[in-house]
């Protein structure tokens, strides 16, 4: 559905490279995630794919259409929800949806089955103006508006940024149901924990893709033995772990410290003794599978 080949975007007089020779492809019906922090180039990639920006190098096709030459055809067939999209605050829910339906040459009834699940949640408030809705409801409305013309590909730029964990969970459940309707979805997020909800992901930082694969394959290819360590004081624990010669890197991870070993890990007893020598009481030590966040940190440390 989407083919991106060495696409590059450069901004301004200082030639800041926002997107640096990025390539990836997205298959039909796939939920593809671009995972990376702010400023990684996610929005620039979205804008190039939705024909809003011209690439400075490389090429890309969406639905088989070239993003530069066939931009009008792409515009007819994709749905897009930009990061700062906030709808028309002074129009009601109903008016917003009807407006976008008409702009895309369709009616709400025609594709009602697509938005039904989401729309019934906000329907009781359909006479309310968008400006008076809660963050979660605005997000649902925005998704309805992006879906109303039955796009073949849906681009969602950071739909969950600044949204609390409960609403985020609800949002991802909606995406899963959409995927079941065979809509290809490309979504970006700075939250690493959302990566596992995608079929395939690209980890991106400073315009460069660090890795592309299924979340499972990415975590499986984590090169180090990873241990979760718990001690009585986190900051001294981290200092102790990071100064240990066999450990490549150690960092806080929730209540634990994660320690990545260069080659083979040491036994629990060895670790307990080592920490004791630094006057830290070890409370837990167990081998764990790397998460996407561990992988991301691993790539950044390299």
């Amino acid at each position: 559905m989407i083919q991106v080949n060495n696409i590059t975007k450069v901004y301004g007089k200082e030639k800041t490279v926002a997107v640096d020779h990025v390539s990836f492809s997205v298959k039909e019906g796939e939920l593809f995630g671009l995972i990376g922090p702010d400023g990684a180039g996610k929005t620039s990639i979205f804008r190039m794919l939705t024909t809003l920006l011209l690439p400075d190098g490389g090429s890309a096709t969406v639905n088989g259409f070239d993003v530069v030459k066939d931009f009008r055809k792409i515009r007819n067939s994709v749905g897009y929800m930009p990061g700062k999209f906030s709808l028309y605050q002074d129009l009601t829910i109903e008016e917003n949806i009807n407006f976008f339906a008409t702009v895309f040459n369709t009616t709400v009834n025609e594709n009602y089955h697509l938005i039904k699940d989401i729309y019934i949640q906000i329907e009781p408030f359909k006479k309310r103006r968008a400006g008076k809705l809660s963050g979660g409801m605005k997000q649902k409305l925005a998704l309805c508006c992006a879906l109303i013309h039955k796009p073949t590909v849906l681009f969602l730029d950071e739909p969950t940024t600044g949204v609390d964990p409960v609403s985020r969970k609800e949002f991802w459940e909606m995406l899963k149901r959409l995927k079941a309707q065979n809509i290809t979805i490309v979504v970006s997020t700075p939250y690493m924990d959302e990566a596992t909800l995608c079929d395939r992901i690209a980890l991106i930082q400073e315009g460069v893709i660090l890795s592309i694969d299924t979340p499972a394959a990415i975590t499986a290819s984590y090169p180090h033995e990873l241990f979760a360590v718990k001690g009585d004081k986190m900051s001294s624990l981290l200092t102790a772990l990071n100064s240990f010669s066999k450990i490549k890197t150690a960092y806080a991870f929730g209540e634990f410290a994660h320690a990545a070993f260069y080659a083979h890990a040491i036994s629990a007893q060895e670790m307990r003794d080592y920490l004791k020598s630094k006057s830290i009481e070890m409370e837990a030590y167990q081998k764990i599978d790397a998460s996407i966040e561990d992988c991301f940190i691993g790539f950044l440390k390299n």
Partner: peptide, 13 residues
């Protein structure tokens, strides 16, 4: 400023 221009541009309109 609202970001709605992006949506409108990415529409057949």
């Amino acid at each position: 400023e609202l970001g709605t221009m992006e949506i409108l541009l990415v529409s057949p309109f």
